[in-house]
Amino acid sequence: MAIAGLLVHSLVEEAEALQERISAMAGMTTYGIHEGQYIVVVAEAPGDQMEAAVDQLDRLPGVLTIYTTYLTIEDELEADGA
C-alpha cells in the first residue's frame, strides 16, 4: 500500500464541493482547506495504482493541479521479503 501526501490546488468556488467529493472517494482522506484553495489530501493505494489514483483526482472538475509532497511504498518493500 503506497501512501502519498498531496496538495490539491482548486478553483476557490469549487474548493468545498471538491473536498466533500474527494473525501467520499476510496482511499482518500482530506485534512482541510487552506487559504481557500488548497485541499490537503492523503491518498492510499497499491503502489502500481497510485499514479492512476492521482490522475483521477487531477481530472475532477475544478482541480487546477496536484502537488505531490510525500510518497512512500516502504511496506511493499517489506512484503518483498526485506
Binding site: I3, A4, G5, L6, L7, T29, Y31, H34, E35, Y38, V40, V41, V42, E44, Y67, T69, Y70, T72
Partner: peptide, 13 residues
C-alpha cells in the same frame, strides 16, 4: 505515515 504525509503537505503551504 499518513500523519507525516499530511504534515508535509501542510508544511508545503
Amino acid at each position: 505515515l499518513k500523519a507525516s504525509a499530511a504534515a508535509t503537505a501542510l508544511m508545503a503551504i
